[in-house]
Design a protein around this nucleic acid. Structure first.
Lengths: 110, 110
DNA sequence: TTTATTAATCGTAATATTGCAATATAATAA
DNA sequence: TTATTATATTGCAATATTACGATTAATAAA
């Protein structure tokens, strides 16, 4: 029914899937890569950089902000965005643990 | 319109988001964790392990299989699933590169 | 104050995802 | 052959996501 049954999973599983979900759209991947690439905050030019309409970008930024992965500072009429370093590092720990599970165990199958 | 404009993004960005999207549901995270935890392939008991209905689990398994992250071997009437090690490693490389982007650059903002 | 400029929000259409009952398929057992 | 068992597929209802035009809000410039 389009609704995920979160209550039957652990907090960790839900956390991992929430982080993954926000990376599950190329526009958000692109925004984050841009924020990493540029040697400062990004004010305004994300709409030009990526080819989507301004309300669409704004919506994607909101999702990234809601998860705490970016933060925005108001500078005059524009807003400067950058990676939230502490939260990114924390997210990375959780995701890395999931990605780096031990592959060497089950040798005797498949 | 619910449809992602993949053509305006790079292959890499689309690849990252496709992997992330499949991790974007706790049931699939749970399935993968179980496959890693158990010291062999898993035949059948995933439906009991996770609390969702059999068609639902089957659907999630299909998505993981479509992306190549797991493989299934038919054993009699049941099917044994396990992590596709080579593909998992390849995915890990792509995702790690994205997660491990350099945070030290932009010190002078936000 | 009036007029840009920039970004957020609202409303809505189109499409995607989730979950499951019902059914189908495939292999084995009796 | 006829159950039985295990998994996949189909069809559908409920909900979520994506995208964007129109509008609003907030600040800056004239």
């Amino acid at each position: 029914m389009g609704v995920t049954k979160t209550e039957m999973f652990t907090d960790e599983q839900n956390k991992i899937s929430l982080f993954a979900k926000v990376f599950g759209h190329p526009a958000r991947v692109s925004i984050l890569q841009h924020l990493f690439k540029i040697n400062s905050c990004v004010c305004g030019d994300l709409v030009n950089e990526i080819g989507l309409a301004q309300p669409t970008i704004s919506q994607h930024l909101k999702e990234l902000k809601n998860l705490g992965l970016i933060k925005g500072n108001i500078e005059g009429t524009s807003v400067c965005y950058c990676i939230h370093k502490e939260n990114w590092t924390e997210m990375k720990t959780i995701m890395s643990e999931f990605l780096n599970q031990d592959l060497s165990k089950n040798q005797n199958c498949c």
